[in-house]
């Protein structure tokens, strides 16, 4: 009896779905908008999708036929090796000055410990974002235009690049610290500098060292092409050989770059692991 009356109630046909009405519609609309933008981009840029697939076999073919026997004599030349050392020097200097300048900027741009949220915070943030937003090659070209060709321009471009790169990581690290010691120091009347030295720095020292080493690693990668735009170092050889269409020499230089970057990455990874173990 009761069962029959229960069965007589028409059950609403409901399908379970993870997102309910307004949310699901918004998700659908966003997805549609993204896909439309993609399709429009393909049409606007005149990209032939078949050529994308063809590009990789073509690249492999070109590498095999034109670039194949790498001209290793060219890269064992004394002048080239000197340029490699200069690239290394530029990356060291750029990384060092970048880290040195980016620590105070990160201090300004960390929301929890900056000394004024109205003025210093946006200023530090803008300095870091600005040097990060402009690509290092554009910085190189600008510095070369103002200061002339040579390693000074390259070093300065790398410095600005490192300020942007390390500054962001540093300020993220600073924003994640434990505020207890900072509040304690502040409440007994320490100056901002004292707070930074005794409450902030001990917490982030290990992380900062790791970030500094990683910054050098990235700066070295960037330093290999800084010379392409007149900044000094091995990039200049790359530019000369590509413009002379000496593909076998380009191949040799590329191999040297890959090997050096690999060594730098392994070395910096080893150092960072050692330092994080010291924590």
């Amino acid at each position: 009896m009761a069962l029959a009356s229960l069965q007589s109630i028409p059950a609403a046909p409901r399908r379970w779905s993870r997102y309910r009405h307004p949310q699901s519609t918004i998700r659908f609309a966003v997805l549609l908008a993204v896909l439309t933008f993609l399709a429009w981009s393909v049409a606007f840029l005149n990209v032939d999708l078949l050529r994308i697939l063809g590009a990789f076999p073509r690249l492999a073919e070109i590498l095999a036929t034109r670039y194949f026997p790498p001209d290793l004599n060219y890269v064992s030349d004394a002048d080239f090796i000197r340029s490699v050392i200069r690239t290394l020097e530029m990356s060291l200097l750029g990384g060092f000055f970048g880290v040195v300048f980016s620590i105070p900027l990160a201090w300004l741009a960390a929301r929890n410990i900056t000394f004024s949220r109205r003025i210093a915070y946006p200023l530090g943030r803008f300095a870091i974002m600005g040097s990060r937003s402009i690509h290092e090659t554009i910085w190189t070209i600008l510095f070369v235009t103002v200061l002339g060709f040579g390693m000074l321009a390259g070093t300065l471009a790398l410095t600005v690049f490192c300020i942007g790169f390390a500054g962001k990581l540093f300020s993220d690290e600073l924003e994640a610290i434990d505020m207890g010691p900072v509040d304690a120091m502040r409440s007994v009347g320490a100056s901002p500098l004292q707070v930074f030295q005794y409450a902030v720095l001990p917490q982030v020292r290990v992380a900062f060292t790791g970030i500094a080493i990683y910054t050098w690693d990235v700066a070295f990668r960037a330093a290999t092409v800084v010379g392409f735009f007149g900044g000094g170092g091995m990039g200049w050889y790359l530019k000369r050989t590509t413009q002379q269409l000496e593909s076998t020499r380009v191949a040799a230089i590329l191999l040297v770059i890959i090997a050096l970057v690999l060594i730098a990455e392994i070395g910096s990874g080893w150092l960072r692991r050692r330092i994080s173990r010291m924590r």
């Binding site: 005149n46 690249l59 990668r221 092409v225 990455e265």
Partner: peptide, 27 residues
């Protein structure tokens, strides 16, 4: 490692050589 160790400028140079000028080598 290969993808990260070669700078985007060098990738672009290689692809400009392979597929010609335009937006495609950049992509």
């Amino acid at each position: 490692v290969l993808s990260r160790s070669i700078h985007e400028i060098i990738w672009a140079l290689l692809f400009v050589g392979a597929v010609g000028l335009g937006a495609l080598p950049g992509i």
